[in-house]
Amino acid sequence: MKGFDLMKQGAEARLYVGMYLGKPTIAKERFKKAYRHEILDDLLTKERIKAESRAIVRCKMAGIRTPTIYLVDFNRRIIFMEYFTNSITAKEMIENQSQSTDKTLELFSLELGKLLGRMHGANIIHGDLTSSNILLFNHMQNLEVVLIDFGLAHIESNTEDKAVDLYVLERALLSTHSIADKLFDKILEGYRAHYKQGSKEVLKKMDEVRARGRKRTMVG
């Protein structure tokens, strides 16, 4: 891709960084999978590009800061979207203790909880909530939190999917950060406050999900 540099290659897509219409841009290319039948590959890719862009737009309508979509190119299988140049990931923020006082961590957790509450209120399931998929910027004066990577997102109203969404975040935080429980309590506080109608049921469901995990007894 002209003018774009490869930033990262995952199992499903390549991420490039460059400029588009004078703005710093990320291009997410879902490259062709040679092992997959062409018709199936095209269908799946189109579906996933649509689901991702739809979730991002819906988040925007619910008042959640997400990358602005500049262009969706089905033929080249690329979504061009806003690149946040002076942001850090939540992961970096939590790990860099010198920068993050207890107060900022608390503010961040409440703010994240608020966004997640709004997101679930709009029936959007992120599907991959890890601290690398949460960005922050301007964190000195006015803390802004942005959710990215909606590659696994879908629209769903049931409590099960929302509970699993939160559970994924809890597990991801617990496995990477030592101060996770403190953070997660505050996240839930913000969540409850901004998702009044549904949070009670989701959190009840989450206790169930925690208890069972994903273990299934198996029959030969």
């Binding site: 199936l40 269908l43 991959d128 890890t130 559970y167 991801a172 994903r214 273990k215």
Partner: peptide, 17 residues
């Protein structure tokens, strides 16, 4: 084309999803 169903799930090991 037939239904294609993969579902992402959390794991009990620290390797993510």
């Amino acid at each position: 084309p037939l239904p294609y169903c993969v579902k992402v799930f959390d794991l009990h090991i620290n390797i993510g999803l």
